[in-house]
Structures are given as C-alpha cells and as structure tokens.
Write a protein that binds this DNA or RNA. Sequence first.
DNA 1: GAGGGTCACTGAACCGGTATAGCTTCGTAC
DNA 2: GTACGAAGCTATACCGGTTCAGTGACCCTC
Lengths: 363, 363
Amino acid sequence: MKRKATITDVAKAAGVSKGLVSFALNDRPGVSPETRDRILGVARDLDYRPSVSARSLSTSTSYAVGLVIARDPEIISADPFFPSFIAGVERVLLTEGRTLVLSVVGDDDHEATVYRTLAAGQRVDGVFLTDLRRDDPRIPMLQELGLPAVTLGHPGTGQMGTGGPGAGDPGTGQPGAGEANPFPSVSLDDTPGTVAAVRHLLDLGHRRIAHVIGPHAMLHASRRRAAFEATLRDAGLEPDPALVVETDFTAAQGAAATTALLERADPPTAIVFGNDPMAIAGLGVAHERGLTVPGDLSITGFDDSELARYVYPSLTSVRTDPLRWGEAAARTLLRLVADGHAADVDLDPAHLVVRTSTGPVRA
Amino acid sequence: MKRKATITDVAKAAGVSKGLVSFALNDRPGVSPETRDRILGVARDLDYRPSVSARSLSTSTSYAVGLVIARDPEIISADPFFPSFIAGVERVLLTEGRTLVLSVVGDDDHEATVYRTLAAGQRVDGVFLTDLRRDDPRIPMLQELGLPAVTLGHPGTGQMGTGGPGAGDPGTGQPGAGEANPFPSVSLDDTPGTVAAVRHLLDLGHRRIAHVIGPHAMLHASRRRAAFEATLRDAGLEPDPALVVETDFTAAQGAAATTALLERADPPTAIVFGNDPMAIAGLGVAHERGLTVPGDLSITGFDDSELARYVYPSLTSVRTDPLRWGEAAARTLLRLVADGHAADVDLDPAHLVVRTSTGPVRA
DNA sequence: GAGGGTCACTGAACCGGTATAGCTTCGTAC
DNA sequence: GTACGAAGCTATACCGGTTCAGTGACCCTC
C-alpha cells in the first residue's frame, strides 16, 4: 500500500502551485484550459483523492449529514420505515459525495448530547428531524446550536401538508399558530390515508372501530388520532376513548393491545393500526383467538411495508413511501446547507391500499 | 449562536499553551494535577468540544467506522437483520465517541467505488464486511487499500465458528485452506441452528423438506445449504436439488418460491426458509392455498425477528441475535483500529426456537 | 556547589486542504 | 511609448488540533 497522493504531490507533478491545483479541481475560473487539463490528468494518474478532513478543516464543512433515531433498537428492527427512509437518503447523498452519519440512541436523554456532539464537533452540516414531538425541544436546541435541519412533517401540525382535501382536522388545529417552523419541512400528509381507512371501514358497515396508535408524545400519533376521530364524527359517530390504545410501535404491544380490545365485553369489529408490524401481530392474535379476518374482525396497517402484501389475509394498509420521503428530505437538506434556505416540500399524500384484511361487518 | 470555543481559546483562558491543553484533555503525563484541573475546568466553562476534522487531520484518524450494505433498498427494509445489527454497533460506538458512516448501495459496481472513496478520503478508520461472498473480491481490495476491516463470519467457511459441536459440516470443507483471513472475524455459527431445524423436522416425520435460501453468491447461503443437505444425509435421505430454491431474500421471492414448491406433483411437507420475511410470506401462501400450518405444511424461519412470535401460527425460527453480533463486531473493529490487531470472536451459535409453525407430518 | 535528572511547560512545525493578496506577463488603448 | 487591466499563476496565511524538541526551575547527589 503506497502512501496516498496529496494535493502537494499533484502540484509538484504538474509543476504548479497547490493553490492552482485546488482551483482546477474545484473548477473555478482563473486557470487556463491547458493547465487545467494537465492538472486533472496528473490527479487521475496519481489516483488523487482529496482528504475530507483537511477540506473540512479549512471550509468548516463536514460533507456529511446526520440522522439521529431515538427509538429502542427493538422497534427500529421491526418497523421498516427507517430502513427505507435511510435507503432513500443514501440514494441522494451518494450522488452528491456526502455521507450519512447515523446515531441510534435508546432513550431521549442521550439524544440531546448526540446532537450537541454532532454540532460542536462539526461532524455534520445538518440533520434530519424525525418523529417530531409536541413542542419539540430539539427545534430550539438546534436553532441555538446553529445546526441546519429538515423536519419530517410540520412541527405545528405534525406531518400535515398543505392540508388534506376535505380532511378538516379540527382536532389538532394549529397549536400556537405564531411559532413558525424555523426549518424547512418535508411532509407527507398521512391524514387522507387515515381518513380513507376509516371511511373504508365505515362503508363496510363497521361502527365500533378501534385505533392502536404510536406513542402519544409523537406528533403524528395525535394528528392521526384527530383525523380518525374527526372522520367518525363526520359520520355521526361519537369516538369511544376506550377504543384508542397507545403503544410504542412494537409488535409485542400491538399484540397486547389487540388482546385487550378483543377481551372487552363489546369488542370492536375493526382495528386501525399505526404501523404494519402491529397490524400483523394483531392478525396473529385474532387467528389465535379463533376469529376470522375479515369475517369477524377487519384490520388495517400503516406504511404498506413489503410484508403487508404477503401475510394472510393480505393487509389493507396506508402507503407512505418512506423511500421517496428520504430522497426528498436529503435533497432539501443539501439545498439548505448549500444555499442557506430551502423550500418546504409536500409529497403525494398517503393513500389507502385495500387488500383482503378488511371486509363487511358480520350481519 | 456564539462562535465555538477552540483549543486556543481554552489555552488563553487558562493561561497556558495550547499544546498543554491538548495534553491535559487527552490525559497524558506531563501535566501537573492542579494545572490539569484548571484546564479541564476552563474547557467545561467554555463548553469546549474538539473539532473532529482538525483532530482527524493531525492524527490521520477519522473516528468513524463504515458499514457498506450492498443490497436493494427493498430487501433491507424487509429484513430486520441490518437494523438490529446497526443498533448493536451504535450501542458500542456511542460510548467510544465514534460515529457510524452508513452507505447503502444497490448494486455491486458502486460498492467498490464506495470503499475506495471511504478509504481514500480518510472518511473511516475501518469497515464491517457483511454478506461475505465466495472468494470475496472486497478482501484483497481492502488489503490493498490498507483499510482495516472485520468480517462477519469466516471468509473461508462462511460464518462457521470454531465448529458447531457435532455438526460435521462435510459439505463445505475448508475451500483452499491456505487463504487465511487477513482480517479478524466475528462469527455466529448458524450451522447448529440449521441442523437443529432440519433434525426437528425429521423427528416430526418429515421426509420431503424444501430449502428456500438466499443468493447463491453469499457464503452463508451455500454453507447453510451444505448443513441442510448433510443433515438429511445423516438421516439416510438423499437431498433433492429440486427442493432447493434460491431467492434474493425478499418476501416477494419467498412467496414465489413457496408457490412453485407447492405446485409440484410431489410437494414438500416442510419448508426451511432463509429468513423470517420469506417464511412469513410462505405462511401467507400456504393459507392462501387452503393449507393449514403445521397440519399440511411445516415452516421454519431464520433470524427470529420480533414478528416471528406474533404471526399465526407463531414461527419456529433460528435465533441469531444480530444486536449482540453488532456489538461484538464494533468492539472488535475498534480494537483492531486502535491496536492494529484483534482476536477472532465466536458468539454463541444460533439455536432453534420451536414455536407452532412446525408439527408432525400428516399421516 | 557543580553536575545530572526529572518535571512542567512553551513554541513551533505539521497534517492537507482553501482563500486571498500580490506578482508577472501580455494585450490594448490613447 | 507609457499606462492600465485582466488573465494566469505563486506564495503564504489559515483552519484547529497533535507532536515533539527545547527551556527553565527545582531537587538530589557527591
């Protein structure tokens, strides 16, 4: 293994100053075409690659972006959202020569430390802010740190985009309409998907519909809950709080929630789950108890993971396209870092994919 | 947002030279206890954090390790192995102040480029080598690049550890026993798990057992196949090549393979799947065709993901503990980077977790 | 009380890039 | 024929750490 070529080596070999090599490589004006070609040729011959740390040091740029995931390892592995999202992010970063610095922290305490470390150590130029929480403390913190960020969804209204057509969403409102999002957001409005799922069940005749949601602290959970309840009210039904169960998104809690719901004196005839793993676990519990799906119980998932299509019965789910979400978020973050600003992006809203886990309520 | 404090600020504030500050912070001898305390105090007051790029530049160390995943985004999101593995890696890195640089590349062409870029740009100090392939070209490449690496499993014999007790493994042998692994390996012998799965099915009376495996090019696929076939032979059965189906690890191909197997004139009575998503998809196909599991068909998975416990019927699977694997791999890689060498690690071998997707063959 | 050794500390070089002021050289305008 | 401007290039400072040779001060020893 021979020593790596530095910019000085290239300069010497090309018979110019290293400043000029820098100019040529970053194609800036002030270099004659012939010299530029010669320099580029020499660089190629020497297999020269600029040192990222040296470049970072002089430009105060790290050429990397960060993703901090504050969820239990268990949950991450079960929920296909993040892997897909990351894949989308990578797809963009790769073409731009940036890298992704990933941090998985179990609990929230460490989370703040991680952001501080990333920011202070100049490890990353910007970060993605996922799983937004109510009055998310990370937003002022990142502002104070001066670390650019892109939020997944609007902090004010969860992932609400420009407003789901006709969704209403009277539950969440704009809490503190004054506090605008200081960061660009990339949103995929999941309200229409939730609404469609509930309407679909209503159309099938269901009246006792349960909702198994994610952690209350996460904005999208409360937003989806609001959409869920608003849709019921639109149909003239009063939502029953006892039919809303909060979980941590794991299959284990999805199963437990299903069991609890089915053991009630007046069990629901349909359950809307907050993600696919929980829905699949719910499917298992139903079978276990001798219920048929969708005969005795209809079930819907969320995110439309690959497996949804292949379980039995195939799972009606809400498609959110995390891959595209990751791509859009990455593009927005890179633009923000480069230009100092970037426009909000609204992706195609989530929509319902009807399969065979939902059916008419038993007469 | 005020400017970040540099080592020079600390030095000035403490009234010493910056060299001494560096010594104090990296607690090296040659600093009096009082001075050290004073410096550390000042550093804390100023909320000083060393710049990673500056440090990287002078030490030629990036304080980051890399993981390159060369699988389709689709597959990664379906297969819980990598998320868990990454979570394990993170758990260790976090305590050591290192970060993980992740790269997801769809196809193998880009893979080489990514390694070269990571190495040449001094982006990472070392990498994890996953999904080892037969005569893996990445090994000589990394050697040539001088980039430290840790392999998941032995390149010679797949993930074989010190040899599963009594497993025999006459199929794989040591191909080219001369080519030792230049890198330390962290292995989790999955042969005992495979053997146990097949034995379990044989004990239940199954004779026509199919095997749905991962890509042939990946070492663990061929190793598991060998273990599978050896176990059949031990029982006096001749393996039927038609009952071995190669897939890309996606649920889609798992479903397709199951369909193909069940449409044969002499369908298998049990199927051993290479991962859980495929097994779950297989479960779905069986149900779809009106078969009961395990009455008409027994099914086993691999990796024992969280969902395995919650599908119906609950999935008999082989537990491999990717989380612990990640932790061990990270520790080994850090040691390798720090000391220049590290010992191979053999984790507890995979073992079978029997649930309800396997049962006696129908009389 | 001079020589030797240790300890605490300083100052400057260095890592490999980028940024910029300044120096040639040449062409053109008046 | 001199002045001026621009193009092309060089030299050097700088980013923020680490490393190491060197400098005093102090103690010990004979």
